[in-house]
Design a protein around this nucleic acid. Structure first.
Lengths: 124, 124
DNA sequence: CCGGATCCGTTTAGATACTG
DNA sequence: CAGTATCTAAACGGATCCGG
């Protein structure tokens, strides 16, 4: 299989797009702590809409990174769980998060400096 | 500083959003091989529009991950370069790419299986 | 009741053409 | 060459409604 991440149709590039997706990262983050119900996910991943949650979960399931267990009960119960492949994502996403945590302060400071410069000397 | 990645306003969560961004990953990928001109980036990051490129570069510069060197020449020349902080992103993005490469085949296969199942037994 | 599909208004990305 | 302006298309979010 060919891999040129800089070609728009490269499958691995597309995969990074999907994984790097705003919600996917967070959903996998929650699921890597253990299986969770739809409702739990909706609560833990604060700010996500039901639409995006089910959409993201479906994509994840289709990609074989998450399994969906639906129980025919009343009230209904649906549990989502990371697959073996999905669990391999955990360390890499954790590292991404660690990077973000250690660099957030610096980035925020940089932004302030940048915005300051834009105000005081935009047309100089 | 507080860090709750599952709160929508968490700064580190927002940072992950930015870094994990489709184009940002690729731009940093190119720049981690060395400084590059705007034009080079436009060519290497195939498929990106000039708007998204300059927008992404501006955001990266504001975040202090990239420096912009503009030379007052004719024709103009602008060189972008990773900062020290920007370079620290390289290993983590490389790992993300490595994950994508090793799991692309499996994901693609899973999708085929999934789509197949949707066709043959959607309403059963 | 829980899980999620659908509809619609708003925001954001993308393509293209144009300017300093 | 390096970007901005403009327009179009898609993605997102919220509210609402439906099936099990």
């Amino acid at each position: 299989m060919e891999f040129d991440p800089y070609h728009p149709d490269c499958p691995s590039r597309k995969l990074v797009d999907r994984i790097g997706d705003r919600w996917t990262v967070l959903i996998i983050g929650v699921l890597s702590e253990g299986p969770a119900r739809y409702r739990d996910l909706a609560g833990r991943v604060a700010g996500i809409s039901p639409k995006m949650l089910s959409q993201s979960l479906k994509a994840l399931e289709r990609d074989g990174l998450v399994v969906r267990h639906a129980y025919a009960e009343v009230p209904p119960r649906v549990v989502y769980e990371l697959t073996e492949a999905g669990r391999t994502l955990r360390p890499v996403l954790l590292e991404l998060e660690r990077w973000a945590r250690t660099h957030t302060a610096g980035v925020l400071a940089s932004r302030e400096r940048y915005d300051e410069a834009q105000i005081t000397a935009p047309g100089v």
